[in-house]
Design a protein around this nucleic acid. Structure first.
Lengths: 247, 247
DNA sequence: TTGGCACAATGGTCCAACCAATTAGGTGAA
DNA sequence: TTCACCTAATTGGTTGGACCATTGTGCCAA
């Protein structure tokens, strides 16, 4: 075993340096999400590097979701940038089969329960009010559109996650949510998909408003359980259809 | 609400197309992690695009950790590539403060408990034997090196995650684990960091071996709780040190 | 066998030009 | 005045070609 003192030689690649300089610029200039960055040509000139190198660096930021580039318009900041920021790209194999969808729900089961607990522990009165607003909007949309309230539903959950005080919940669950719905635009023949989860939104809110962590966990678990049931029913429907078409 | 029929706008940027073609190539060729990709010049020629575009696409894959580029050597696959992959760039602002580390533990708390449950439900006899082997190795390493058993410790947990049957657990928790340890190389003055968690590895195993999901959840939670305690103690130590150096 | 050297292959950087989308400004008709 | 349309400048996207820096390989001599 070689002494761990011999660490890899620090080889600062060019675009890495550009990224560091860019962090300094953004923080120094106090740029916030939505603001426009200097053009690639300007950056290249000021940093004394070629536009190619600047582009390579910006491509990396774009992939991390820190920045958005619009041809003809400019490059815009998409998230807060700080020194010591930690990027952790995670690539998940996924499929549209039953198992993969179930996997995303298993993750959500663990995380949503935990987020509900933290939310119930930490919510301020203003947070409670805000979450209730989202809940009411979701309930209205549910009744008005006969059960189609995906956006408002998500807004409600988002409010819970944000109140948990841990930004990782939102990021990870959002990814699971996207993975789930990417292959779920047409609910596998389950017409009333999501209906069963409806009442648990309010019970979850009640537990949070009562600052009851254990209750919040229980309600969150019930909510996810209904989605799991819907998924299983959808899988059953698919099986039947396949048998039919084979026969 | 506009009909979702006319949504896509499908603006396939050039490097996106390159990436898709590359996925097909990698899967079609059956390339595995460690294998070498064709050179940028070859790819550019075959795909009928400029080398710059190929490079831009590969930069994105590099940022996602799918690929590693070595100057003078070539470009190598770093992870399995499949169609329908989901890329989840986690960005955690301001990385090494107490709150951020605590956030990673909150995620682990939710996921490790859930993984333990699923593991206890689904483990085959062979799985149990395998996990026990990892446990024994970890215990031996712990006694031999007076508490330094980070690698073997992780191997044990990994075995549990894999037995859960859901690959997402391993990947997400691994990301949290790395996030945590990147800023925890020097345990903030807590010399016996991790010691407290030691006994719960065996109790966790016992619950899994007994096919006791509820017990497995409880032991997993206890284990994480000890790590949280260590972290809090470390934070306290830091505070004291700061006060001292100020005085 | 060992060590050093030259050379080819490969990723990294640079440049200059052009393409494509967007934006801002101006022009003219209603 | 107001609005639609055209035009030109701006900006990111792409291309081809050149050169640099690093790595791997094979040959040769000690």
């Amino acid at each position: 075993m070689i002494s761990p003192i011999l660490s890899p030689v620090h080889t600062p690649s060019r675009d890495d340096a550009v990224l560091h300089a860019l962090v300094d610029f953004v923080t120094g200039e106090g740029l916030k999400p939505g603001d426009r960055l200097p053009t690639e040509r300007v950056l290249a000139e000021h940093l004394k590097v070629s536009r190619t190198t600047v582009r390579e660096a910006l491509t990396r930021w774009q992939e991390l979701g820190l920045v958005e580039r619009r041809q003809g318009s400019g490059t815009y900041l998409k998230a807060a940038v700080t020194r010591n920021m930690l990027h952790l790209p995670l690539t998940l194999p996924s499929g549209n089969d039953f198992n993969s969808l179930m996997h995303t729900l298993e993750i959500r089961r663990g995380l949503e329960a935990e987020a509900a607990v933290l939310c119930a522990e930490r919510a301020s009165d203003e947070d409670i009010t805000f979450i209730e607003q989202k809940l009411i909007k979701m309930e209205e949309a549910f009744h008005a559109r006969h059960g189609m309230s995906a956006d408002e539903d998500w807004d409600f959950h988002l409010a819970v996650f944000r109140t948990s005080g841990n930004p990782l919940f939102e990021q990870i669950i959002a990814a699971m949510y996207e993975m789930f719905h990417r292959f779920w635009e047409h609910p596998l023949g389950v017409r009333d998909f999501g209906h069963a989860s409806f009442p648990y939104h309010r019970t979850l809110f009640n537990a949070i408003a009562a600052r009851d962590p254990a209750g919040a966990r229980a309600e969150a678990l019930k909510l996810i359980a209904t989605v799991e049931d819907d998924l299983k029913r959808g899988a059953e429907n698919l099986k039947k259809q396949n048998k039919k078409s084979q026969a």
